[in-house]
Design a protein around this nucleic acid. Structure first.
Length: 749
RNA sequence: GCACCCUUAGCUCAGUUGGUUAGAGCGUUCGAUUCACAUUCGAAAGGUCUCAGGUUCGAACCCUGAAGGGUGCACCA
């Protein structure tokens, strides 16, 4: 008997605030989050299988919210479990530049303090200020991330705008351009007049809005519209050839009629897809400011006339209304048409969806613009030799089960999205971001003196990694002012963080990654784009499993928002109840893909559990025992077997990504079985002494050890804190202790 | 409009091949406590598993339909 008594620290309740910083420091010093260190120190075998997760990078200028905390908890559990299982385990951290969000934040701050706009500062100065801001604020999110107990390998930290990632983005653009996947086109795009930039289809959020629906006399027809201010250039009228009401009007027929600014000649177009049920069944075409109309204009080769400028101001075509903002112009135009007796009726309660920029921008105005696009329907050759379109590639990756999406129902949503996907507009008119490697020739050619100049040969635009020089004249090239959609660089994230385009050891070892864990709200933005990018650039999938977690809501199921005042700050919870409690509250009861309803009571409940474990340890360590003992009496052997079976079951739940069930089971075993029953029935046995007491005290110690390992992935701090107080242990840190069950082999270790 | 999901105790949710008496946490009520537990233990109350049909020896679970709630996508002149 070693007769040891429990260390004094156990005399007080578990105090996360005192323990957590010490534990964090020990973990950090150990370097075990870095798989190379684990191999060096003999914790992981050099030829071990690898397991990797790349952290979905939070906004570099943001702060940690509950969604992040849930994400960190899930990933850290998977990582710690696999590290203990002996995998070569990498969890790679990073932050995202969040182009539009960051730029608007800095612009707003500058305007508040200095009353200056980005145009007053100029591009270079604005970018300098943004970098400054990023430098200042990035420590916040990084420190908060660490406080959750995340065992990330910070030696591999990546930032979307750092030089290696910038280079990867340029390389990706060049390769896609050279393959003909990236092209420049003059097409209708989603224009945000507030942020002055284009926005991709996926960033659009439709908001229900009530607006008057006007019916106007248009020659012999009545046309309906919510947007009279766009109708100046409308000279084509669409009817369905099957529509009995308009049978006498032939396709191509010219009709003279009175319109907003006087007489015009309209052309009748027959289109079999025209909806006869909607409004009057008659529609005029506004090709420049409506995606559907633009398609029709292309189909029937109709003129496309811009009516509204980038700021929402009417152009000269609007006659007396030119120069007015569309908001003010609308009622004025309606008044004029009414005065001309062209207003037939108004439906005041028309409810429709208005496109807005979900990234905090304004109401979208479709505009025709020359932008860069990625062709999703063009067949190209992939690095693995297959020839197909990007759409087909994205579909195949999931259909072939190479990638598994959890919960499964999101696979259908994913396919549905692919089917409706149009070419992806990747250029943005903001300054902060990866600049497009395209170079524009100066507007005028400058002949080179003393040389026969053939300026007609000058190439107006060149796509190149380096700034090109004109072969034919002395004019310079200037870089395209646009930057890339932030999701372009995000799409490369699983491999740009591992050193691509270099053929690095990390890339070979850790790609494809094992799991991508993220919120279901960015499945299209991000998940699909990663599949697209690694498909084309590597000929491989970016990850094997997609684990989609739900949104964290308040106790009543409402979204957490500042305006509702129901935001629970994860750091508050960590300070009050400890990181372990915060983590458990986000895991237990949260099945894959389901929203998580969180209340402070839940967090408090799990703090009690941390304390429970603490006291179990105190009790077990206080009793005398023989650490070398190995032969147990029968009833005790059965207890050990029982724990083993719990370990097995918990392992299987984790393997199936049912972390909620795994955590719940471990929790109940430790509290209801170990503490409430096993320890209680041990008290008289220990008191009685003799052989049964010796066997039992060793048994309790063994169950404690296993319980600590079992709970470590879920509540790493308190388990590690107890581990540190153990009189003898197999490894200096619980973080790298051996997980007691090998589910691949199906046996206990 | 097309598709998907949800509806189980007062609240939040488990219940994954259809099988005794449907479970947990929180909350409520009552009791215990010289004990490893300031954060402990025991017990109780609380259910027409949304509704209506069907399959089955047997349904919370499978099928059909309905209602309510939610989500994605499209349309929106």
């Amino acid at each position: 008997m070693d007769g040891s008594k429990a260390p004094e620290v156990f005399l007080k309740p578990y105090d996360p605030a005192a323990q957590e910083p010490k534990i964090l420091e020990m973990w950090e010093k150990s370097g075990y989050a870095n798989p190379d260190v684990c191999v060096e120190k003999g914790v992981t075998k050099p030829d071990a299988e690898s397991y990797s997760i790349v952290l979905p990078p939070p906004n570099v200028t943001g702060t940690l919210h509950m969604g992040h905390a849930a994400m960190l908890a899930v990933e850290d559990i998977l990582i710690r479990y696999h590290r203990m299982r002996g995998y070569k385990t990498l969890w790679l951290p990073g932050t995202d530049s969040a182009a539009i969000a960051t730029q608007s934040k800095v612009e707003t701050d500058i305007y508040k303090k200095e009353k200056k706009t980005r145009h007053d500062l100029g591009r270079e100065e604005l970018l300098r200020r943004i970098d400054e801001f990023v430098e200042e604020s990035k420590a916040t999110i990084i420190n908060q991330t660490k406080k959750m107990g995340s065992s990330l390998d910070w030696s591999r930290y990546a930032y979307t705008m750092d030089p290696p990632r910038y280079r990867a983005v340029m390389e990706a653009f060049m390769r896609m351009y050279e393959a003909g996947l990236i092209y420049r086109g003059n097409r209708i795009v989603n224009w945000d007049p507030k942020l002055q930039t284009t926005v991709s289809d996926d960033e659009i959020e439709y908001v229900e809005q009530k607006d008057p629906f006007y019916y106007f006399q248009y020659g012999p027809f009545v046309m309906g519209t919510v947007r009279p201010e766009t109708k100046f250039g409308d000279k084509c009228v669409i009817i369905n050839p099957a529509d009995e009401r308009y049978k006498k009007y032939k396709h191509g027929q010219k009709i003279d009629l009175e319109w907003i600014d006087g007489p015009i000649t309209a052309t009748v177009i027959h289109d079999p897809d025209q909806d006869m049920e909607f409004g009057s069944g008659v529609m005029t075409i506004t090709a420049a400011h409506d995606a559907h109309d633009f398609e029709l204009a292309q189909k029937y080769d109709l003129p496309v006339i811009q009516v509204i400028d980038d700021r929402g101001i009417l152009l000269p075509i609007a006659g007396e209304f030119a120069g007015m903002h569309i908001k003010k112009a609308r009622p004025a135009i309606v008044e004029k048409l009414k005065a001309k007796s062209l207003l037939v009726k108004v439906d005041e309660n028309y409810v429709h969806n208005v496109a807005t920029n979900s990234r905090g921008g304004g109401v979208i105005e479709p505009q025709i613009k020359r932008q860069w696009f990625i062709a999703v329907n063009k067949a190209v050759e992939f690095p693995d030799g297959k020839t197909m379109t990007l759409k087909e590639r994205m579909r195949e990756a999931v259909e072939s089960s190479a990638i598994k999406i959890m919960p499964e129902r999101f696979e259908k949503i994913y396919y549905h999205w692919i089917d409706n996907l149009r070419d992806w507009c990747i250029s943005r008119q903001i300054w902060f971001g990866h600049r497009i490697p395209a170079w524009h020739h100066e507007p005028k050619c400058i002949p080179i003196s003393g040389r026969e100049a053939d300026i007609s040969k000058c190439i107006p635009i060149i796509v190149s990694r380096e700034k090109p020089e004109c072969q034919f004249c002395a004019a310079a090239y200037e870089q395209d002012p646009d930057t890339l959609d932030t999701w372009f660089s995000s799409g490369l994230w699983t491999f740009s963080t591992l050193g691509w385009p270099e053929d690095t050891k990390d890339l070979k070892t850790y790609h494809p990654t094992s799991v991508l864990e993220t919120g279901y709200d960015i499945i299209f933005f991000w998940v699909a784009r990663m599949i697209l990018m690694s498909g084309f650039l590597l000929g491989d999938i970016p990850f094997r499993n997609v684990y989609l977690h739900g949104l964290v809501r308040d106790a009543k199921g409402r979204k957490m928002s500042k305006s509702l005042g129901n935001v629970i700050d994860p750091l508050d919870m960590v300070n009050k109840y400890g990181a372990d409690a915060a983590r458990l509250s986000l895991i237990i009861g949260a099945a894959v893909g389901n929203d998580i309803k969180l209340s402070e009571d839940r967090v408090r409940g799990y703090k009690h559990f941390a304390n429970k474990l603490w006291n179990i340890a105190r009790f077990v360590l206080e009793s005398d025992r023989d650490p070398m003992r190995s032969d147990l009496i029968g009833s005790d052997q059965r207890l050990v077997d029982e724990v083993q079976n719990v370990v097995k079951s918990v392992s299987e739940h984790i393997d199936k990504f049912r972390l909620d069930l795994a955590a719940d089971q471990a929790y109940h075993f430790v509290w209801d079985r170990f503490a409430a029953e096993i320890i209680e029935e041990s008290k008289p046995i220990l008191k009685a002494g003799g052989e049964p007491a010796a066997s039992r005290s060793y048994t309790l110690y063994a169950i404690l050890l296993t319980s600590l390992k079992l709970l470590h992935p879920f509540m790493p701090f308190v388990t590690e804190a107890i581990w540190q107080e153990l009189p003898s242990k197999e490894s200096d840190l619980l973080m790298v202790a051996k997980w007691p069950f090998d589910s691949a082999q199906g046996k206990f270790v």
